[in-house]
Design a protein around this nucleic acid. Structure first.
Length: 586
DNA sequence: GCCGTTTTCGGCCCGACTGTTTTCAGTCG
């Protein structure tokens, strides 16, 4: 078993233990161990065989044994026993809001309820309200929760959440009682997929702000409403939570609610190590009363809180507990890329294949946006579903684009289209075009669009092979995933990144909000190997140029700076970089 | 289940909200 699989088993064990009613700290030990395994940089099998598991934080004697069993035998008796003892329907019930392990256990023990369907029926029959600890309201809420889960997905693309959050935030900004406000949570951290929208405001009149918020247009219903906090369900199916705090508390609340949870635990622990206490209300010198204002360490902004804890500032995108705190202790974090650093996108489509606009119109639109260049890289012939081009049509398109560029030059414009192709990596690893054709193109992207179900070894060797081709500049959407729709195909990131490092091949950060592929979690490794990134829109329409902004946000999560991203370069420098690999490999 | 210069037991981040109770447990983030 590899580390992802081991981490998944450990996470599942934690869920099963919760349902069993085990000590919550024992449960957490499994969650922590899963995270440690997932984020370790060495191959797990090596650490196991060298018996160095115990050196890792959070892995003691018991977990060493279990992980070793998983890695060496591919299974774990303890896990199988737990699974056998827990009806799978109970796990599904955890997804219903308001139902946690204790209530689910009670439902199972008292009424023998083992599935969501049985639970729904029991609610309708009025059997739940009579149980100790349950009531009419809980029964109704469970039914509503089951219904809502069927009607709406509970996870949302950031591209759906951002435009939903913006009007709410704007409304808060305009309210006279609101002093400061911001998004928080996973949205502020710019996660690719979010659960709900977190908003934070400071005010002297919290109840009024809460009331104002719950009466905004676009609210389907109000889930909860208190003095300082409200949750609403928006018409698009996304939940939004608002918390209102005093302005003195605001920076602490913003830090706390931006998270992530794991990052917060590290920060709190750091405060404790300095004889301080950090929570959403403040940073306090140690004392019996944790919210005693006399013990408060004054901070007006998040920046000041980091400073008081002996840290350089950590941008929200990096607050994921992937080593940011340890580094911020030693030195300023890298200056992350800004979306305005981007000069164009190298991977885009036109009506020649499955795009919606013609090259001349695209050139005009992208020039007006203030970009410097735009690659036209239509599909190759094997992508027949996308109207892929054969060699003859590619050469025809080359002529058209050259003419457009000549016209641009005649008008005195510096904007240029780049010629290119998104060439398919075929099932057997060959490319869909011959090298002599690829050599005629400004920019070549190689991507997988077929045979998604091959083994990890086969897919990896297709990608490594493509990287070894001297004419391929970029590997496109590395894993083929479609967020919330399609799983990535199996491939070995490390091996592919290493091959790119060796050959001078760039890796795409496909900025389509359905893809964001390669995943941000792999960019620090790629960066450490000197592999460059191209943030590409994979645009099929004008509007997709806006993906540059979203893509830059994901690149920031991957710790990327302007220097790591090739399409921050001006056109002449980009052209010389595009020539570098071809020169090196000939 | 993990951890430890206050170390082999007794902690483990912590507060708001809801619904059920009648002082609090469970859930959530």
């Amino acid at each position: 078993m590899d580390k992802d699989q081991v981490a998944e088993v450990l996470t599942n064990i934690a869920v099963l233990l919760e349902l069993k009613g085990e000590n919550p700290f024992k449960t957490r030990a499994y969650v922590n161990a899963a995270r440690t395994i997932e984020t370790m940089s060495e191959p797990l099998a090596m650490v196991v065989s060298e018996q160095r598991l115990g050196e890792m934080k959070g892995i003691g004697e018991a977990l060493q044994k279990k992980i070793t069993e998983l890695v060496t035998t591919g299974g774990l008796a303890y896990y199988e026993e737990l699974k056998a003892a827990t009806p799978p329907g109970l796990v599904a019930m955890l997804d219903i809001p308001g139902l946690g392990p204790k209530k689910i256990k009670a439902l199972h023990d008292e009424l023998g309820i083992e599935t969501v369907e049985l639970l729904e029926q029991a609610c309708k029959d009025g059997k739940i309200a009579g149980l100790k600890g349950f009531g009419e309201k809980t029964q109704t809420n469970i039914l509503e929760g089951i219904h809502r889960r069927r009607t709406y997905a509970s996870r949302h693309l950031i591209s759906d959440a951002l435009p939903t959050a913006e009007p709410l935030l704007e409304a808060l900004r305009l309210h006279p009682d609101v002093i400061r406000c911001s998004t928080a949570g996973s949205l502020r951290r710019h996660r690719e997929v979010i659960g709900d929208i977190d908003l934070l405001a400071s005010s002297k009149q919290p109840a009024e702000v809460i009331d104002y918020f719950t009466h905004q247009p676009g609210i389907f219903n109000v889930i909860a409403k208190g003095e300082t906090k409200a949750s609403v369900l928006l018409e698009g199916g996304i939940q939004a939570d608002l918390r209102v705090v005093s302005d003195a508390e605001y920076p602490f609340a913003l830090l706390y609610f931006t998270g992530s949870k794991e990052h917060n635990i590290v920060m709190r622990q750091r405060a404790i190590d300095r004889d301080l206490r950090l929570n959403e209300y403040g940073l306090f010198r140690s004392g019996a009363e944790t919210r005693d204002p006399k013990l408060l360490v004054n901070c007006r902004t998040e920046e000041e809180i980091f400073e008081k804890l002996g840290l350089h500032y950590i941008p929200p995108e990096l607050r994921e507990d992937t080593g940011e705190v340890a580094l911020a202790e030693k030195e300023p974090l890298p200056r992350l890329i800004e979306w305005t650093d981007l000069k164009g996108s190298l991977h885009n489509h036109s009506t020649w294949s499955d795009g919606h606009q013609q090259p001349a119109d695209i050139a005009r639109a992208m020039r007006e946006l203030g970009l410097a260049y735009w690659g036209i890289t239509d599909h190759s012939k094997s992508s027949f579903q996308a109207n892929g081009l054969d060699a003859a049509r590619v050469r025809q398109q080359l002529k058209e684009i050259r003419q457009i560029n000549e016209d641009l030059a005649a008008e005195g414009s510096d904007f240029r289209l780049l010629t290119g192709a998104e060439v398919d990596i075929l099932k057997d690893g060959r490319l869909d075009f011959e090298d002599d054709l690829l050599a005629e193109l400004d920019v070549v992207i190689a991507s997988i669009h077929q045979s998604f179900n091959q083994s990890e070894e086969e897919t990896t060797s297709r990608l490594v092979g493509a990287a070894r081709n001297p004419y391929v500049h970029i590997l496109g959407h590395l894993t083929g995933r479609l967020l919330l729709e399609r799983e990535p195909y199996k491939m070995d990131h490390r091996a592919v990144i290493d091959a790119c490092a060796e050959t001078g091949t760039w890796i795409e950060l496909n900025a389509s909000p359905l893809r964001f592929d390669m995943d941000w979690r792999w960019w620090p490794y790629a960066r450490s190997k000197g592999v460059k990134c191209a943030i590409n829109c994979d645009a099929h329409r004008f509007e997709h140029a806006g993906f540059l902004r979203l893509g830059a946000g994901i690149a920031r999560k991957g710790w990327l700076t302007r220097e790591d991203v090739v399409n921050t370069l001006p056109l002449d420098k980009l052209r010389s970089e595009l020539g570098r690999k071809r020169a090196k490999m000939q």
